[in-house]
Design a protein around this nucleic acid. Structure first.
Length: 643
RNA sequence: GCUCAUAUAGCUCAGUGGUAGAGCACUUGCUUGGUAAGUAAGAGGUCACCGGUUCAAGUCCGGUUAUGAGCUCCA
């Protein structure tokens, strides 16, 4: 038979030859390095026979595929076995690879602790040092179930039972046949191919990812070709931790949280400065794009939420308030608003609207509260009290497409201004819990899909991910540590206008329902500021830095000059602080550098006498010296907000 | 919400059932200096909260709250 290699060359091998035979025929080095093969696009074990003319490529540790196969063997054959050796009676669930590593889910008889990871690692190294070969046996469903029954592995049984295939279940063994794991393979041919690894953490995870199921114990690990790659990876993690917005927020004194208000931000002066700068930037952009800003109440009667559908579909996320009857003679149930949309419809509904009023774009920096499950909160990224850069566009069905285009144009520009060049779009369709008929959902989904298609933008489909009132386009940014954050959103809603009775008079003189588009660009100020901090490692662009310039004296004789500079900088709108403390300049430089002040002006005898300033910029140890007036001009020119 | 872990000075963290600790920060003195930590002294604590075991609890046990990692969820 003929085997075609990736470079197009063809080799003739006997029928039934294996990947290993092929590798050997090419070279002894390759035979040694080969981990598995890809036969006609499907990964196979190195010892699987190849029975017909095929395109074959040999996988080594140097490819992503090879790395992944090694990680897979490490978790399924080594981690799982080590755990069973040390903790007999532990039941195995599943052990896949993930980005940069792997995990395995176990049901332990007795909970283990992170300290146990060391001993598990040692046991893994012991297993690896056997240099055992990995062999595979194929079994029918019945045989496989029988084997795992004997092994006492109910999760494996359940996986096999739920599988549609009838035979060809792959069971992998090591030399001593004392350990077996079910696996769709392939595995590396021998444990000697395992590279450098480290177990990272343990955490709970539901069986099959369903919160109704039992919570298993998951062990996470990472594995690489060699020690060098491993330590590079560990450095990368450490680097990422350094830019955690919670850590930087504390160091830069931007905000804090406390027990009495979990998930709600206490903004400190510098943090609030960033917030206000971002808000005013957004405000002017929205005004330019034809939005009218409004402000609506925080606490509203349950009746409105019943009408909007929130009471039914969203109540578990709402803060409900009751008036204390002992001290007030009114009995009323209110809710803190979790969304602004019903309020916006109330404003729309004031006064009769004509088709000439559409599209009507209402914007609100809307402060919302949502009762998020306690385990989901995460710094500024996921909070219970937050402010959306919210807006609702009331328009006709025909206007959806042009509004989508205008919105994406605005969003792209704003993301770019704020330092994000790239974003992904997701189209999320009807969820299980929803209001409105299927016909209305068909219409809304079609409208969004055709708008995004006509704009020629790539998007991913996310079935069932929509809001309860309508489908949506979500705009997802990737932050500096690779996490994705859903920020912008654009949701077509045919339901709320109906439920809250919004209408307009059409050209034909009769009444029609407008479509309502819910949209946000930043999503929430809180989350977006968190993303900004991580993206910039706290080193915000000049226009967004809460303190832009620190004026630090070297000798106390320069105090007066420092105050003069502060006054002049303030006059041109630069946010600056004087640091007149009795400290050495290097101490002051260190402190202002660690709080990420972009410009430090140091004033000594020289500057004072010549009326100059020397400027030191973030991440540079050089200084630039200018005449005072020139320096102010330069800094003032730099202090320009985008747009 | 679930699993596991954590909670000690403003911050970062030690602390072995028997008198509460360090570094930094803070205050005061000395020091007036040239670009990432001058120097000395002082002050600073209901060891998250509630209960239990014990002659004795920061330490052991139970509960509560918050936080962290992950899971589930995420308008």
């Amino acid at each position: 038979m003929n085997i075609t290699l990736p470079d197009g060359s063809i080799r003739e091998l006997e029928q039934g030859s294996t990947g290993l035979d092929l590798a050997s025929s090419i070279g002894a080095g390759l035979a040694k390095a080969a981990l598995a093969v890809t036969v006609n696009g499907i990964q196979k074990d190195l010892n699987d026979p190849i029975n017909e003319d095929s395109k074959v490529s040999i996988i080594t540790i140097d490819s992503d595929d090879g790395l992944e196969i090694m990680r897979h063997t490490l978790t399924a054959q080594v981690l799982a076995r080590a755990v069973k050796n040390l903790f007999p009676g532990t039941k195995l669930a599943i052990g896949p690879t993930i980005t940069d590593g792997f995990y395995y889910d176990f049901e332990f008889k007795k909970a283990i602790s992170p300290e146990d990871l060391d001993s598990i690692e040692k046991e893994m190294k012991k297993i690896i040092s056997s240099n055992s070969l990995i062999t595979k046996k194929l079994n029918t469903k019945e045989e496989a179930i029988e084997i795992f029954k004997l092994e006492g592995e109910p999760y494996k049984e359940s996986i096999i039972n739920d599988s549609e295939q009838e035979d060809g279940f792959q069971l992998y063994y090591q030399d001593d046949f004392k350990f077996v794991d079910l696996c769709r393979g392939p595995h590396i041919p021998s444990l000697k191919h395992i590279g450098a690894f480290k177990l990272l953490k343990i955490a709970g995870a539901y069986w099959k990812g369903d919160s109704n199921n039992k919570m298993l114990t998951r062990i996470y690990g990472t594995a690489w070709k060699n020690e060098k790659d491993l330590s590079a990876y560990l450095d990368r993690i450490e680097e990422a931790e350094k830019r955690d917005h919670r850590k930087l927020g504390k160091e830069m004194n931007l905000f804090h949280f406390q027990e009495e208000a979990p998930g709600m931000v206490f903004w400190h002066p510098d943090g609030w400065t960033i917030y206000r700068l971002l808000e005013s930037y957004m405000r002017s952009n929205l005004e330019l794009c034809g939005y009218k800003e409004i402000k609506t109440p925080q606490v509203l009667d349950r009746k409105l939420w019943e009408a909007s559908g929130h009471w039914d579909k969203y109540r578990e996320n709402m803060f409900i308030t009751e008036i204390d009857e002992e001290h007030a003679n009114e009995k009323r149930v209110n809710a803190l608003k979790p969304m602004n949309c019903p309020c916006h419809v109330q404003i729309y509904n004031q006064g009769l609207k004509s088709y000439r009023d559409l599209p009507l774009r209402l914007a609100e920096f809307g402060s919302c509260h949502r009762y998020e499950a306690s385990g989901t909160m995460h710094g500024l990224m996921r909070v219970r009290g937050f402010t959306q850069d919210d807006g609702h566009i009331f328009c006709t069905e025909e206007q959806i497409e042009s509004e989508t285009g205008l919105f994406i144009e605005l969003l792209s520009r704003i993301y770019k201004d704020l330092g994000f060049e790239k974003f992904d779009i997701k189209l999320s369709t009807r969820p299980e819990i929803r209001v409105g008929s299927d016909e209305v959902w068909d219409k809304a989904e079609d409208a969004l899909e055709s708008a995004i298609k006509n704009l020629g933008l790539p998007y991913k489909l996310e079935e069932g991910g929509g809001a309860f009132y309508g489908p949506k386009l979500d705009f997802v940014l990737t932050d500096a540590i690779g996490r994705e954050w859903q920020c912008g959103t654009f949701q077509a809603d045919f339901n709320l206008p109906e439920r809250l009775d919004a209408e307009y008079v059409g050209e034909d003189g009769s009444k029609h329902r407008p479509v309502m588009i819910h949209r946000a660009i930043l999503g929430s100020f809180e989350r977006f500021i968190g993303v900004l901090i991580e993206n910039y490692s706290g080193k915000l662009p000049f226009w967004l830095a809460p303190v832009q310039v620190a004026v630090a004296t070297i000798i106390s004789d320069a105090d007066e000059y420092a105050n003069e500079i502060i006054t002049k900088l303030s006059e041109v709108g630069i946010r600056c602080n004087a640091d007149l403390r009795n400290e050495k300049i290097s101490y002051k430089v260190r402190e202002h550098s660690s709080t990420k002040v972009p410009v430090i002006i140091a004033l000594g005898k020289r500057e004072q006498e010549n009326r100059t300033v020397s400027i030191r910029r973030m991440d540079s140890d050089k200084t630039e010296t200018y005449e005072l007036e020139e320096a102010i001009k330069i800094l003032s020119e730099e202090n320009t907000r985008p747009n």
